[in-house]
Amino acid sequence: MTTTDATQHGSAKLTAAQLEPPLKRNGLVRFLADTATMTRRNVLYLVRRPQVVVFALISPIMFVALFNYVFGGSMSVGELSYIDFLIPGIMVQTVMFGGGNTAIGLAEDMGRGVIDRFRSLPMSRLAVLSGRTAADAARGIITNTVILTVGFVIGFRFSNGIGWAIGSFLLVLLFGYSITWAYAWMGLKLKSVEAVQAATFLPAFPLTFAASTFAPVTGMPDWLQVFSANQPVTQVVDAARAMMHGGDIAGPLVRSLLWCAGILLVFGFLSVREYRKG
């Protein structure tokens, strides 16, 4: 056997005696550790695709500016200034549309050989999904911080105390996290990146526009209000808005949390089932 360039450096290798065995972990610890590893992997993917990060930042900035300056002047939203009304809506809209990346990312992974590698490793299977949704939720922290910053520059202010302000931010993140599981299911179900790209907008548009996101639902026709007043985006936006500026918090907050729990349970279950099938 001849030695070639590819092999001749392999002399100073670790011997079997120098190797440490794998850590003994129970199911839960393994799940958490693997979720952390997979989150890191997905975050690295996010930051290495600067165009994706830039677009994810530009579109909410554009929405804040456009909606505020285009509609702000002619929109009557009660006692709040339009920018104060708008910001919680834009935040929820952003996590709603941002979820599309979860679907695309998972469909991409499933279409590539790397998912087979993960499946051949002694790792928690669920971590492929939980690491993906966690990374996308982490992205939500950045985009929402940018939105708030831009909002502050053009006049947005919290007026209900720092505690509720933080609470509203966390509520939006929680809703965003729940929604990523719905998108995860979509990505696993549709499989092809092209199909996912086309499909993510279908639920996102009616849910974010037929809601209290940009205008009060009371201005919408009765038949539409049946949907818009009761769907989750309106509950979350109303709760976040009340937490930021005052008003009835308890009602919409409880309904928001119930929606989040329901979405997480249903789509968490469906996603895991779909992933196991593949």
Partner: peptide, 21 residues
Amino acid sequence: AAVDDLLTGRENLEIVGRLYQ
């Protein structure tokens, strides 16, 4: 089986190592 394109060679191996626990 495959590796992640956007990760470095080292990152790929370290992640696999972590997933081997």
